[in-house]
Amino acid sequence: MANSADLSKGLPANPEKATLDGKNKFLGAWVFLAGETTMFAVFFGTYLGLQSGTAGGPEPSEIFQLPLVFIMTMLLLTSSLTSVMAIYAMKKNQFQKLKRWMWITVALGAVFLGFEIYEFVEYVEHGLGFTTSAFASSFYALVGLHGAHVLFGLLWATLLLVRNRNAGITLTNAPKFYVFSLYWHFIDVVWVFIFSAVYLMGIGG
């Protein structure tokens, strides 16, 4: 594999793109994220089309709780920042700091997921099952798909951290951490649209 960077001076300033392997992972991640954009668009379109079809079941404005959504938003937004910090630590060859910021990211994501599970349980208790109405199905499909992405991200990051716990920052694992951080930001962007288009428009619109 051809290295474009001079390795004798230490870790290259952009370790995630110092090798052909890293460059390919970087490009592949972006292709994947562009595809994810269109997939989420289909789920958003379906939800926005079906949200008024409540079929006598609970309506969005009856069940959505602003404080809970606000806390979840802050958690995910902060975890996006901590993964930015992790990548800056990686670029400066600070492995301990990278690990610490990544674990904080995982912890924030896990709390977010816990709140989401709590939220869904609460809704089911209020009589909003998956098959209650078109609104219910499309809501659970959209928000649940996002939740599944969060869960996948948590498993991904945990696996990366456990496997590389003593590895230091190398040209092999730097692209992996970088690609994870791109994915995590993307999940945060999707949540921005969920809290805007689903929750806030369901309550205030």
Binding site: M1, N3, A5, L11, D21, K92, G168, L171, T172
Partner: peptide
């Protein structure tokens, strides 16, 4: 080259 890829670095090359 393969073992280089798995080696951590002692310092950053950043100026």
């Amino acid at each position: 080259m393969a073992e280089d890829m798995e080696q951590p670095f002692e310092k950053s090359s950043m100026s």
